[in-house]
Design a protein around this nucleic acid. Structure first.
Length: 426
DNA sequence: TCTGGGGTCCTAGGACCC
DNA sequence: TCTGGGGTCCTAGGACCC
Protein backbone atom coordinates (compact mmCIF):
# COMPACT_ATOMS: atom_id res chain seq x y z
CA UNK A 1 0.00 0.00 0.00
CA UNK A 2 0.95 3.62 -0.54
CA UNK A 3 0.12 6.56 1.69
CA UNK A 4 0.00 10.20 0.76
CA UNK A 5 0.50 12.58 3.65
CA UNK A 6 -0.68 16.11 2.98
CA UNK A 7 -0.41 19.06 5.37
CA UNK A 8 -3.74 20.81 5.94
CA UNK A 9 -3.75 24.42 4.64
CA UNK A 10 0.01 24.24 4.99
CA UNK A 11 1.06 27.89 4.72
CA UNK A 12 -1.78 29.00 7.00
CA UNK A 13 -0.88 26.31 9.53
CA UNK A 14 2.73 27.54 9.55
CA UNK A 15 1.66 31.11 10.25
CA UNK A 16 -0.73 29.96 12.94
CA UNK A 17 1.89 27.88 14.69
CA UNK A 18 3.55 31.04 16.00
CA UNK A 19 0.33 32.95 16.44
CA UNK A 20 -1.83 30.82 18.72
CA UNK A 21 -4.24 33.74 18.97
CA UNK A 22 -5.29 32.89 15.39
CA UNK A 23 -6.42 29.35 16.25
CA UNK A 24 -9.93 28.75 14.88
CA UNK A 25 -9.87 32.15 13.17
CA UNK A 26 -9.85 32.72 9.41
CA UNK A 27 -6.35 33.06 7.94
CA UNK A 28 -5.07 33.43 4.38
CA UNK A 29 -1.62 33.58 2.79
CA UNK A 30 -0.88 35.55 -0.37
CA UNK A 31 1.42 34.73 -3.28
CA UNK A 32 4.55 36.75 -3.95
CA UNK A 33 3.78 40.37 -4.69
CA UNK A 34 0.64 39.89 -2.60
CA UNK A 35 -1.23 39.06 -5.80
CA UNK A 36 -3.28 35.89 -5.31
CA UNK A 37 -4.60 33.91 -2.39
CA UNK A 38 -2.64 30.65 -2.23
CA UNK A 39 -3.60 29.17 1.13
CA UNK A 40 -6.79 29.40 3.18
CA UNK A 41 -7.68 28.05 6.60
CA UNK A 42 -10.97 26.14 6.90
CA UNK A 43 -12.56 29.20 8.48
CA UNK A 44 -11.56 31.35 5.50
CA UNK A 45 -12.91 28.73 3.08
CA UNK A 46 -16.19 28.71 4.97
CA UNK A 47 -16.46 32.46 4.47
CA UNK A 48 -16.30 31.90 0.73
CA UNK A 49 -12.78 33.16 0.06
CA UNK A 50 -11.83 31.53 -3.26
CA UNK A 51 -8.59 29.67 -3.97
CA UNK A 52 -6.03 31.22 -6.30
CA UNK A 53 -8.29 34.23 -6.72
CA UNK A 54 -6.82 37.71 -6.78
CA UNK A 55 -6.50 39.27 -3.37
CA UNK A 56 -8.12 42.56 -4.29
CA UNK A 57 -11.32 40.84 -5.37
CA UNK A 58 -11.72 39.03 -2.06
CA UNK A 59 -10.79 42.11 -0.04
CA UNK A 60 -14.37 43.05 0.93
CA UNK A 61 -15.04 39.63 2.49
CA UNK A 62 -11.60 39.63 4.10
CA UNK A 63 -11.98 42.99 5.75
CA UNK A 64 -15.57 42.52 6.82
CA UNK A 65 -14.67 39.27 8.60
CA UNK A 66 -11.29 40.31 9.99
CA UNK A 67 -9.44 37.57 8.16
CA UNK A 68 -5.75 37.53 9.12
CA UNK A 69 -3.66 38.16 5.98
CA UNK A 70 -0.01 37.15 5.46
CA UNK A 71 2.47 37.63 2.61
CA UNK A 72 4.24 34.36 1.85
CA UNK A 73 7.19 33.60 4.12
CA UNK A 74 9.05 30.85 2.30
CA UNK A 75 11.88 30.66 4.83
CA UNK A 76 9.37 29.66 7.49
CA UNK A 77 7.43 27.20 5.29
CA UNK A 78 10.62 25.59 4.00
CA UNK A 79 11.90 24.98 7.49
CA UNK A 80 8.64 23.53 8.82
CA UNK A 81 8.32 21.38 5.69
CA UNK A 82 11.73 19.91 6.45
CA UNK A 83 10.60 19.08 10.01
CA UNK A 84 7.49 17.29 8.77
CA UNK A 85 9.51 15.27 6.22
CA UNK A 86 12.15 14.40 8.82
CA UNK A 87 9.42 13.06 11.07
CA UNK A 88 8.19 10.78 8.27
CA UNK A 89 11.73 9.66 7.45
CA UNK A 90 12.32 8.86 11.09
CA UNK A 91 9.15 6.74 11.18
CA UNK A 92 9.57 4.83 7.91
CA UNK A 93 13.19 5.19 6.82
CA UNK A 94 14.57 7.53 4.23
CA UNK A 95 14.09 5.20 1.27
CA UNK A 96 10.37 4.74 1.94
CA UNK A 97 9.54 8.44 1.80
CA UNK A 98 9.15 10.36 -1.44
CA UNK A 99 8.84 14.09 -0.90
CA UNK A 100 6.38 15.17 -3.56
CA UNK A 101 5.99 18.86 -2.80
CA UNK A 102 6.59 21.29 0.03
CA UNK A 103 3.56 19.94 1.91
CA UNK A 104 3.10 16.40 0.59
CA UNK A 105 4.93 13.09 0.70
CA UNK A 106 4.21 9.57 -0.51
CA UNK A 107 5.14 6.71 1.81
CA UNK A 108 5.72 3.14 0.79
CA UNK A 109 3.85 0.96 3.32
CA UNK A 110 4.67 -2.41 1.75
CA UNK A 111 6.40 -3.53 4.93
CA UNK A 112 3.28 -2.96 7.04
CA UNK A 113 0.96 -5.99 7.51
CA UNK A 114 -2.53 -5.27 6.06
CA UNK A 115 -4.29 -5.50 9.43
CA UNK A 116 -2.08 -2.75 10.84
CA UNK A 117 -2.51 -0.24 8.02
CA UNK A 118 -5.32 1.74 9.60
CA UNK A 119 -3.48 2.08 12.92
CA UNK A 120 -0.31 3.18 11.18
CA UNK A 121 -2.18 5.75 9.11
CA UNK A 122 -3.65 7.22 12.25
CA UNK A 123 -0.25 7.14 13.90
CA UNK A 124 1.25 9.19 11.08
CA UNK A 125 -1.27 11.92 11.71
CA UNK A 126 -0.82 12.05 15.48
CA UNK A 127 2.98 11.81 15.42
CA UNK A 128 3.48 14.58 12.86
CA UNK A 129 1.14 16.83 14.77
CA UNK A 130 2.83 16.08 18.07
CA UNK A 131 6.36 16.55 16.78
CA UNK A 132 5.85 19.56 14.52
CA UNK A 133 2.52 21.15 15.39
CA UNK A 134 1.34 20.72 11.80
CA UNK A 135 -1.93 18.89 11.10
CA UNK A 136 -1.89 16.44 8.20
CA UNK A 137 -4.35 14.27 6.29
CA UNK A 138 -3.48 10.72 5.29
CA UNK A 139 -4.89 8.75 2.35
CA UNK A 140 -3.92 5.13 1.81
CA UNK A 141 -4.57 2.79 -1.15
CA UNK A 142 -2.80 0.43 -3.54
CA UNK A 143 -1.84 3.15 -6.02
CA UNK A 144 -0.79 6.79 -5.86
CA UNK A 145 -3.86 8.03 -7.72
CA UNK A 146 -6.23 6.12 -5.40
CA UNK A 147 -4.30 7.32 -2.36
CA UNK A 148 -4.82 10.89 -3.58
CA UNK A 149 -8.55 10.20 -3.93
CA UNK A 150 -8.62 8.87 -0.35
CA UNK A 151 -6.69 11.86 0.93
CA UNK A 152 -9.09 14.34 -0.66
CA UNK A 153 -12.11 12.59 0.79
CA UNK A 154 -10.53 12.40 4.24
CA UNK A 155 -10.45 16.21 4.29
CA UNK A 156 -14.07 16.56 3.27
CA UNK A 157 -15.57 15.36 6.50
CA UNK A 158 -12.88 15.70 9.11
CA UNK A 159 -15.11 15.03 12.11
CA UNK A 160 -15.85 11.52 10.86
CA UNK A 161 -12.59 10.58 9.14
CA UNK A 162 -10.22 12.31 11.58
CA UNK A 163 -8.28 13.18 8.44
CA UNK A 164 -7.44 9.56 7.68
CA UNK A 165 -8.90 7.34 4.97
CA UNK A 166 -7.80 3.87 3.91
CA UNK A 167 -9.19 2.30 0.73
CA UNK A 168 -8.57 -1.38 1.25
CA UNK A 169 -11.72 -3.07 -0.08
CA UNK A 170 -13.43 -2.96 -3.45
CA UNK A 171 -16.55 -1.49 -1.85
CA UNK A 172 -14.64 1.37 -0.26
CA UNK A 173 -12.79 2.08 -3.50
CA UNK A 174 -15.96 2.15 -5.60
CA UNK A 175 -17.74 4.39 -3.12
CA UNK A 176 -14.78 6.77 -3.03
CA UNK A 177 -14.52 6.92 -6.81
CA UNK A 178 -18.23 7.61 -7.15
CA UNK A 179 -17.95 10.56 -4.76
CA UNK A 180 -15.03 12.07 -6.66
CA UNK A 181 -15.78 14.34 -9.57
CA UNK A 182 -13.61 13.96 -12.63
CA UNK A 183 -11.81 17.28 -12.28
CA UNK A 184 -10.73 16.38 -8.73
CA UNK A 185 -8.68 13.42 -9.98
CA UNK A 186 -4.91 13.81 -9.74
CA UNK A 187 -3.71 14.12 -13.33
CA UNK A 188 -6.93 15.53 -14.75
CA UNK A 189 -6.68 19.25 -15.28
CA UNK A 190 -9.02 21.75 -16.87
CA UNK A 191 -8.70 20.64 -20.50
CA UNK A 192 -8.97 16.90 -19.86
CA UNK A 193 -11.97 17.46 -17.58
CA UNK A 194 -13.76 19.38 -20.33
CA UNK A 195 -12.96 16.68 -22.84
CA UNK A 196 -14.07 13.87 -20.53
CA UNK A 197 -17.39 15.53 -19.83
CA UNK A 198 -18.08 15.47 -23.55
CA UNK A 199 -17.64 11.69 -23.41
CA UNK A 200 -20.17 11.69 -20.57
CA UNK A 201 -17.53 10.83 -18.00
CA UNK A 202 -18.28 12.79 -14.85
CA UNK A 203 -16.82 10.91 -11.90
CA UNK A 204 -13.59 9.12 -11.12
CA UNK A 205 -15.68 5.94 -11.18
CA UNK A 206 -16.79 6.56 -14.77
CA UNK A 207 -13.19 7.10 -15.78
CA UNK A 208 -12.01 3.93 -14.04
CA UNK A 209 -14.36 1.93 -16.26
CA UNK A 210 -12.76 3.10 -19.52
CA UNK A 211 -10.36 0.81 -21.32
CA UNK A 212 -6.70 1.31 -22.09
CA UNK A 213 -7.03 1.69 -25.86
CA UNK A 214 -9.54 4.46 -25.35
CA UNK A 215 -7.24 6.18 -22.83
CA UNK A 216 -4.29 5.98 -25.15
CA UNK A 217 -6.26 7.66 -27.89
CA UNK A 218 -8.02 10.37 -25.91
CA UNK A 219 -5.96 11.16 -22.83
CA UNK A 220 -2.48 12.01 -24.00
CA UNK A 221 -1.13 8.52 -24.77
CA UNK A 222 0.86 6.83 -22.03
CA UNK A 223 -0.21 9.44 -19.47
CA UNK A 224 -3.86 8.47 -19.83
CA UNK A 225 -3.08 4.76 -19.78
CA UNK A 226 -1.21 5.12 -16.50
CA UNK A 227 -4.00 7.15 -14.99
CA UNK A 228 -6.69 4.56 -15.81
CA UNK A 229 -4.54 1.67 -14.63
CA UNK A 230 -3.99 3.44 -11.32
CA UNK A 231 -7.73 4.07 -10.91
CA UNK A 232 -8.34 0.38 -11.54
CA UNK A 233 -5.88 -0.38 -8.73
CA UNK A 234 -2.84 -1.45 -10.75
CA UNK A 235 0.25 0.52 -9.66
CA UNK A 236 1.65 2.34 -12.69
CA UNK A 237 3.29 5.40 -11.19
CA UNK A 238 6.29 4.20 -9.23
CA UNK A 239 7.74 5.66 -6.06
CA UNK A 240 10.70 7.85 -6.89
CA UNK A 241 13.83 7.23 -4.87
CA UNK A 242 15.93 10.24 -4.15
CA UNK A 243 15.04 13.70 -5.22
CA UNK A 244 17.25 14.01 -8.25
CA UNK A 245 18.89 17.20 -9.33
CA UNK A 246 16.67 19.69 -11.06
CA UNK A 247 16.88 19.67 -14.84
CA UNK A 248 15.93 23.27 -15.07
CA UNK A 249 16.08 26.12 -12.60
CA UNK A 250 13.90 29.15 -12.93
CA UNK A 251 13.69 32.42 -11.05
CA UNK A 252 10.94 34.80 -12.03
CA UNK A 253 8.98 37.54 -10.30
CA UNK A 254 6.27 40.03 -10.99
CA UNK A 255 7.53 43.58 -10.49
CA UNK A 256 6.19 45.53 -7.53
CA UNK A 257 5.26 48.28 -9.98
CA UNK A 258 5.28 48.51 -13.78
CA UNK A 259 8.75 48.95 -15.28
CA UNK A 260 9.65 50.89 -18.42
CA UNK A 261 13.41 51.46 -18.18
CA UNK A 262 16.23 49.15 -19.19
CA UNK A 263 18.17 49.92 -16.00
CA UNK A 264 15.53 48.35 -13.77
CA UNK A 265 15.17 45.40 -16.11
CA UNK A 266 18.90 44.75 -16.01
CA UNK A 267 18.97 44.99 -12.22
CA UNK A 268 16.07 42.59 -11.89
CA UNK A 269 17.63 40.12 -14.33
CA UNK A 270 20.95 40.31 -12.48
CA UNK A 271 19.15 39.66 -9.18
CA UNK A 272 17.17 36.71 -10.53
CA UNK A 273 20.31 35.29 -12.13
CA UNK A 274 22.08 35.45 -8.75
CA UNK A 275 19.19 33.59 -7.15
CA UNK A 276 19.12 30.94 -9.86
CA UNK A 277 22.90 30.47 -9.65
CA UNK A 278 22.56 30.01 -5.90
CA UNK A 279 20.02 27.23 -6.41
CA UNK A 280 22.33 25.71 -9.00
CA UNK A 281 25.27 25.65 -6.58
CA UNK A 282 23.12 24.20 -3.85
CA UNK A 283 22.71 21.07 -5.95
CA UNK A 284 26.40 21.15 -6.94
CA UNK A 285 25.70 21.66 -10.60
CA UNK A 286 26.55 23.97 -13.45
CA UNK A 287 24.43 25.11 -16.39
CA UNK A 288 25.23 25.54 -20.04
CA UNK A 289 22.12 27.31 -21.30
CA UNK A 290 20.63 30.50 -19.96
CA UNK A 291 17.35 32.03 -21.10
CA UNK A 292 15.78 35.34 -20.20
CA UNK A 293 12.18 36.38 -20.63
CA UNK A 294 10.19 39.55 -20.23
CA UNK A 295 6.43 39.82 -19.91
CA UNK A 296 4.77 42.98 -21.20
CA UNK A 297 1.83 44.48 -19.44
CA UNK A 298 -1.31 44.63 -21.52
CA UNK A 299 -4.45 46.53 -20.85
CA UNK A 300 -7.34 44.13 -20.73
CA UNK A 301 -10.53 45.47 -22.20
CA UNK A 302 -12.69 42.70 -20.87
CA UNK A 303 -13.25 41.41 -17.37
CA UNK A 304 -10.94 38.44 -17.65
CA UNK A 305 -7.31 38.65 -16.64
CA UNK A 306 -4.76 39.10 -19.38
CA UNK A 307 -1.52 37.25 -18.87
CA UNK A 308 0.45 39.46 -21.23
CA UNK A 309 2.80 38.40 -24.00
CA UNK A 310 6.07 36.77 -23.10
CA UNK A 311 9.16 37.27 -25.21
CA UNK A 312 12.20 35.17 -24.56
CA UNK A 313 15.63 34.40 -25.89
CA UNK A 314 18.49 32.21 -24.82
CA UNK A 315 22.15 31.55 -25.32
CA UNK A 316 24.38 28.54 -24.91
CA UNK A 317 27.60 29.13 -23.00
CA UNK A 318 30.91 27.68 -24.20
CA UNK A 319 31.31 25.95 -20.83
CA UNK A 320 28.83 25.05 -18.13
CA UNK A 321 29.21 27.29 -15.09
CA UNK A 322 27.68 28.03 -11.71
CA UNK A 323 29.55 31.27 -11.13
CA UNK A 324 27.19 34.17 -10.70
CA UNK A 325 29.30 36.72 -12.55
CA UNK A 326 29.72 34.41 -15.54
CA UNK A 327 25.95 34.02 -15.75
CA UNK A 328 24.99 37.63 -15.14
CA UNK A 329 27.00 38.88 -18.09
CA UNK A 330 25.20 36.90 -20.82
CA UNK A 331 21.86 37.32 -19.02
CA UNK A 332 22.14 41.08 -19.26
CA UNK A 333 23.05 40.90 -22.94
CA UNK A 334 19.92 38.81 -23.51
CA UNK A 335 17.80 41.29 -21.57
CA UNK A 336 19.12 44.17 -23.67
CA UNK A 337 18.30 42.24 -26.80
CA UNK A 338 14.68 41.76 -25.67
CA UNK A 339 14.02 45.17 -24.23
CA UNK A 340 12.04 47.66 -26.29
CA UNK A 341 11.80 51.30 -25.41
CA UNK A 342 8.20 52.30 -24.86
CA UNK A 343 6.97 48.93 -23.68
CA UNK A 344 5.66 48.55 -20.14
CA UNK A 345 6.82 45.37 -18.39
CA UNK A 346 5.29 43.62 -15.41
CA UNK A 347 7.42 40.55 -14.98
CA UNK A 348 10.79 39.06 -15.92
CA UNK A 349 12.60 35.82 -15.38
CA UNK A 350 15.72 33.76 -15.87
CA UNK A 351 15.95 30.06 -16.64
CA UNK A 352 19.03 27.84 -16.39
CA UNK A 353 19.02 24.55 -18.25
CA UNK A 354 21.41 21.95 -19.73
CA UNK A 355 22.37 21.27 -16.14
CA UNK A 356 25.36 19.05 -15.40
CA UNK A 357 27.13 18.05 -12.17
CA UNK A 358 29.83 20.53 -11.26
CA UNK A 359 33.01 18.49 -11.05
CA UNK A 360 34.98 21.48 -9.83
CA UNK A 361 33.07 21.64 -6.61
CA UNK A 362 35.78 20.13 -4.44
CA UNK A 363 38.64 21.55 -6.41
CA UNK A 364 39.63 20.08 -9.70
CA UNK A 365 43.25 19.69 -10.74
CA UNK A 366 42.41 20.16 -14.38
CA UNK A 367 40.79 23.51 -13.95
CA UNK A 368 42.64 26.74 -13.60
CA UNK A 369 43.28 28.04 -10.14
CA UNK A 370 41.11 31.10 -10.70
CA UNK A 371 38.10 28.97 -11.39
CA UNK A 372 38.49 27.13 -8.11
CA UNK A 373 39.00 30.39 -6.27
CA UNK A 374 35.84 31.79 -7.81
CA UNK A 375 33.88 28.75 -6.78
CA UNK A 376 35.23 29.14 -3.27
CA UNK A 377 34.23 32.79 -3.26
CA UNK A 378 30.70 31.80 -4.30
CA UNK A 379 30.56 29.35 -1.41
CA UNK A 380 31.53 32.05 1.05
CA UNK A 381 28.94 34.39 -0.41
CA UNK A 382 26.20 31.75 -0.23
CA UNK A 383 27.04 31.02 3.40
CA UNK A 384 26.94 34.65 4.43
CA UNK A 385 23.69 35.27 2.58
CA UNK A 386 22.16 32.20 4.13
CA UNK A 387 23.18 32.88 7.70
CA UNK A 388 22.65 36.64 7.75
CA UNK A 389 19.97 37.90 5.46
CA UNK A 390 19.18 37.25 1.83
CA UNK A 391 21.27 39.40 -0.49
CA UNK A 392 23.38 41.03 2.18
CA UNK A 393 26.20 40.30 -0.27
CA UNK A 394 25.35 40.84 -3.90
CA UNK A 395 26.77 41.87 -7.24
CA UNK A 396 26.61 45.56 -8.08
CA UNK A 397 24.64 44.76 -11.25
CA UNK A 398 21.70 43.84 -9.01
CA UNK A 399 21.26 47.50 -8.13
CA UNK A 400 20.75 49.24 -4.83
CA UNK A 401 17.54 51.22 -5.19
CA UNK A 402 15.52 48.37 -6.66
CA UNK A 403 12.16 50.05 -6.95
CA UNK A 404 10.99 47.11 -9.11
CA UNK A 405 11.05 44.82 -6.06
CA UNK A 406 7.88 42.95 -5.28
CA UNK A 407 5.41 44.02 -2.66
CA UNK A 408 5.16 42.12 0.59
CA UNK A 409 3.08 44.10 2.97
CA UNK A 410 2.08 41.42 5.46
CA UNK A 411 5.27 39.46 6.03
CA UNK A 412 5.59 37.50 9.28
CA UNK A 413 8.94 37.05 11.09
CA UNK A 414 11.32 34.22 10.13
CA UNK A 415 10.63 32.56 13.47
CA UNK A 416 12.73 29.46 12.89
CA UNK A 417 15.60 30.60 10.67
CA UNK A 418 16.77 34.02 11.96
CA UNK A 419 18.11 34.64 15.45
CA UNK A 420 16.58 38.11 15.48
CA UNK A 421 13.15 36.70 14.75
CA UNK A 422 13.03 34.03 17.43
CA UNK A 423 9.78 33.84 19.31
CA UNK A 424 9.89 35.47 22.72
CA UNK A 425 8.31 33.50 25.54
CA UNK A 426 7.50 35.50 28.59
C1' DT B 1 -5.11 50.24 -9.31
C1' DC B 2 -4.31 45.42 -7.92
C1' DT B 3 -4.19 38.25 -10.81
C1' DG B 4 2.43 33.62 -8.17
C1' DG B 5 6.44 30.88 -8.86
C1' DG B 6 8.18 27.00 -9.49
C1' DG B 7 8.60 22.36 -11.75
C1' DT B 8 7.80 17.61 -14.63
C1' DC B 9 6.68 14.60 -18.45
C1' DC B 10 5.09 13.64 -23.02
C1' DT B 11 4.16 14.22 -28.05
C1' DA B 12 4.57 15.86 -32.64
C1' DG B 13 7.22 17.25 -36.17
C1' DG B 14 11.46 18.62 -38.51
C1' DA B 15 16.31 17.72 -39.64
C1' DC B 16 19.47 14.51 -40.54
C1' DC B 17 21.61 9.93 -41.25
C1' DC B 18 22.23 5.40 -43.54
C1' DT C 1 17.63 7.67 -63.61
C1' DC C 2 15.46 5.74 -59.78
C1' DT C 3 13.70 8.74 -54.84
C1' DG C 4 12.12 3.98 -49.21
C1' DG C 5 11.94 3.12 -44.73
C1' DG C 6 13.65 3.31 -40.37
C1' DG C 7 16.16 5.34 -36.78
C1' DT C 8 17.90 9.23 -33.69
C1' DC C 9 18.14 13.71 -31.90
C1' DC C 10 16.36 18.12 -31.00
C1' DT C 11 12.88 21.71 -30.10
C1' DA C 12 8.48 23.75 -29.25
C1' DG C 13 4.50 23.44 -27.07
C1' DG C 14 0.84 21.35 -24.38
C1' DA C 15 -0.72 19.10 -20.45
C1' DC C 16 -0.29 18.40 -15.67
C1' DC C 17 1.13 19.19 -10.52
C1' DC C 18 1.37 22.12 -5.97
Amino acid sequence: MIAIVDCNSFYCSCERLFRPDLENKPVIVLSNNDGCIISRSDEAKALGVGMAGPYFKAKPIIEANHVAVFSSNYNLYGDLSWRVMETLRTMFGQHNVEVYSVDEAFINLDIIPPEQIEDIAMQIRTTVEQWTGIKVSVGVATTKVLAKVANKLSKKNKAITQCVMVLNTKEKIDAALQQTSIDAVWGVGFSYAEKLKKFNIHTAYDLSKQNIIWAKKHLGGVVGVRLIQELKGFPSIQMKDELLNKKMIMTTRMFGAAVTDIKSIKEAIATYTSRAAEKLRRQNCAAKTISVFLVAKQESHNASFNRGTTINTYTTLPLATSLTHQLIKPAIVLAERLFEQGTVYKKAGVMLSDIVPDASIQGNLFLSDTKNKSRFLMGVMDNINFSQRNDILKFAASGTTRNWKMQQNFHSPKYTSRWDDLCLVK
